[in-house]
Design a protein around this nucleic acid. Structure first.
Length: 717
DNA sequence: ATGCCACTAATTTTT
DNA sequence: TTAGTGGCAT
């Protein structure tokens, strides 16, 4: 037996990889070789003959993770990874539903709505029911529907006493009916529908349980209720559910992730305890010590402490800037210094809590001529020109697709205005037929000619496409629909949009369908399930800018975490309850553990937020790090519990513009409160005699005081 | 049908 | 501050 597979694994990794055919929970710390363990275990199962390629189910959250698993597995052993059930929750559910579409009550060619499509479907529904989107904002309805689906609950199982919720439930039911009528499913529906098919059909779930003796899950801490329920259906007591995750890196509770699933797995599957992967192969010792110290403050952890046999490395650099601009300047200066020392820009990242923080960094980066790349923003298949072209494709494939029809009926403008569309929608509702059918039946009216012309366009496209390949079809659609002409006439960004459309044809050219007859459906599915890269110039040597969330799973030689201020990181919306604060702390933990060699933390004493200057204080997370691991680069910073002395207190910056309104108090001024003791003014709002001051008290922490009441209790210091 | 003004809200996000 | 949206005028 060739055991090269197992060479170089540490004892814990080895134990996880060669775990017998029963369930396990692997508590995999950041940088502990999680993906390696997962892929090596699959390779091991196959190589030892414990499993056949068809007998393994491996689930991830992102396409990127799934692809990486496939690539690495293919490099380890000769196996056709394409045929294996390795994929995302959604991708695998799609695959399942394409096979069992009859059991699921779906057309074989069902289409997938991405969140944008779902949003327009909901807006359309609200309109058709004549419901004001004031009272029922589409976003709120969407959120309600998705969170119910992600809890595995259908509209029919819900009840409510208040009329508002009752209406939401009604809308949920009506939305599902609309989707069903149109043969489309949203993301959550892929999961829920698969779950229902399996749970209703004992023979079918039995079949899959027998087939998938080994079920492996990545990022298990991010699973929601429905995903875990789905896993439990596929992995019964006799199957081996092998879940890998890290409760300390659970940062998606806000979108339904349930860390509790980790503990649930232990009891549901009678697993005695997690296998801990604590040896870290990424970061220098000091970074790990600091991260450990931070995360230890969270309650209810499964418990884990990262270590490395690499040396301690550099201390963590801490910089407290006067302003957000100066903070950005510091970061960029430091990046340039490192680059001069031979560090690659692409191996450095600036991480921030919220996207808005990138603006000022960009500004300084442009000024300094440093190449950078921002993660996030529009992705390829989300661009309007791509969506338009694909809507035509959908319409050609299935004219009953109302969403697609509405998207392009007047794009490019062909004289079918809002009122004609409204008439059409009324007609379709009254006759109980799709928009397309209503369109075909439309008699008189002023726009009748235009409508008929549109019908002819789609019909002729369908006919002409029959004999064409996917790429030829898309190419024809772009030309014949008038999209190309429209963007050629658009001087502003037509050129870029045309280039993207060409790119779309290219993508179609390189697309290999599983089943050639289904090429169009498969291509549309892929476009929905895999929206593509954020940016094309990914390969260039450029400084990486992204949110901490986006950085999960990545690593860099040098990491800058900016905006470490109360209210920003931790974010003020999460500061009220302990759960929120702990998630923010995990976010900080994720941020820190991205760094290999060098970690920089920074904050600013004044920051522009929502067009107003704020004077925040340093994040508690900085103070939670052991002082001996930090090297303070700025002159003003004080560590530990003492009130923060900011630039104002030191007279370094002119009084804030607000100062006149503060009822005699100044930003940064020291004061004494009869009850709370000594403190410093750190923020204020209001004017005249309605002023509130935010004060950081040495003993009692940060408080907002209403001057109307607190006036007599305060004295200057 | 398009463009302008006023208004509002303002984390994090994959599929 | 700014980005996105809705109403209204051209």
């Amino acid at each position: 037996m060739n055991n090269d597979l197992l060479a170089g694994l540490n004892p814990e990794q080895l134990s996880a990889v060669t775990w017998p055919a029963k369930s396990a929970l692997v508590l995999a710390g950041a940088g502990s070789g999680k993906t390696r363990v997962l892929t090596t275990r699959i390779a091991w199962l196959l190589q030892t003959g414990q499993a056949s390629p068809a007998g393994v189910l491996a689930v991830t959250f992102t396409n990127k993770a799934a692809r990486e698993m496939q690539t690495r597995l293919a490099a380890m052993i000769p196996v056709n990874v394409k045929t294996m059930w390795i994929g995302t929750f959604h991708g695998l559910c799609n695959r399942f539903l394409r096979v069992h579409y009859r059991d699921a009550g779906l057309p074989q060619t069902f289409q997938i709505l991405d969140s944008g499509d779902q949003s327009s479907a909901i807006k359309r529904l609200l309109k058709s029911l004549d419901i004001s989107d004031e009272k029922f904002p589409p976003k709120a309805v969407q959120q309600f529907i998705n969170s119910q689906k992600e809890s595995g609950v259908r509209a029919g199982e819900l009840s409510a006493h208040d009329p508002y919720t009752r209406k939401l439930i009604e809308l949920y039911a009506a939305y599902d009916a609309q989707c069903q009528r149109e043969g489309v499913v949203d993301f959550a529906e892929l999961l829920l529908r698969s779950y229902e098919v399996l749970s209703r059909n004992a023979a079918l779930s039995e079949h899959y349980r027998n087939r998938f003796r080994f079920v492996l899950v990545d990022e298990f801490q991010d699973t929601n209720r429905l995903q875990y329920a789905w896993l439990k259906l596929l992995a019964g007591p006799d199957n081996a559910l092998f879940a890998v995750g890290d409760d300390d890196q659970s940062i998606y509770a806000f979108r339904g992730a349930e860390v509790g699933n980790m503990r649930a797995l232990l009891s549901d599957y009678g697993v005695t305890g997690p296998i801990r992967l604590e040896q870290n192969y990424r970061s220098a010792g000091t970074i790990l010590d600091a991260a450990n110290a931070l995360i230890e403050r969270n309650d209810g952890r499964l418990g884990k402490s990262l270590w490395t046999d690499a040396g301690p490395g550099d201390k963590i650099r801490l910089y407290e800037a006067y302003s957000d601009g100066e903070e950005a300047q510091f970061i960029v200066d430091e990046v340039r210094a490192l680059a001069r020392d031979g560090w690659n820009l692409a191996d450095m990242a600036v991480l921030y809590r919220s996207n808005a923080q990138s603006r000022i960094l960009e500004h300084v980066l442009v000024q300094s001529g440093v190449a950078y790349r921002i993660y996030g923003g529009l992705r390829f298949f989300e661009r309007q020109e791509i969506k338009h072209a694909l809507a035509y494709l959908r319409l050609v494939a299935n004219p009953e697709d109302d969403n697609a029809l509405l998207r392009v009926i007047n794009v490019p403008a062909r004289g079918i205005g809002a009122r004609s569309v409204e008439n059409l929608q009324t007609a379709s509702r009254e006759q109980g037929v799709s928009l397309w059918q209503a369109l075909c039946g439309a008699g008189g009216g002023r726009t009748a000619g235009k409508l008929a012309e549109f019908v002819r366009l789609i019909d002729s496209l369908r006919q002409r496409c029959e004999a064409l390949s996917l790429a030829e079809t898309i190419s024809l659609i772009i030309d014949a629909s008038g999209l190309r002409a429209m963007y050629e006439a658009d001087k502003k960004d037509g050129e870029e949009r045309l280039a993207n459309l060409d790119e779309l044809v290219n993508a179609a050219l390189g697309f290999l369908p599983q089943e050639p007859a289904m090429a169009v459906i498969e291509f549309l599915t892929q476009a929905s399930l895999e929206a593509g890269d954020h940016q094309a110039d990914a390969g260039a040597d450029a400084l990486q800018l992204m949110t901490v969330h986006a950085a999960k799973g990545l690593e860099f030689d040098a990491v800058f975490v900016g905006g470490l201020e109360e209210g920003l990181f931790p974010h003020e919306n999460s500061m009220n309850d302990g759960k929120g604060l702990e998630e923010e702390r995990r976010l900080m933990y994720v941020a820190m553990t991205r760094a290999r060699k060098r970690l920089y933390l920074s904050c600013a004493q004044s920051r522009m937020l929502h067009g107003q200057s704020r004077y925040p204080i340093r994040s508690r997370f900085v103070d939670e790090l052991p002082a001996e691991l930090l090297q303070v680069l700025s002159a003003t910073v004080k560590t530990a519990a003492a009130p923060v002395r900011n630039a104002y207190a030191q007279g370094r910056i002119a009084a804030a513009p607000l100062a006149a309104n503060l009822g005699g108090w100044k930003m940064g001024q020291g004061l004494h409160h009869t009850k709370f003791g000594d403190g410093v003014v750190i923020n204020a709002e209001g004017a005249g005699d309605d002023v509130r001051l935010q004060i950081n008290f040495a003993e009692h922490g940060i408080k907002w005081l209403d001057l109307r009441y607190a006036k007599d209790k305060l004295s200057a210091q």
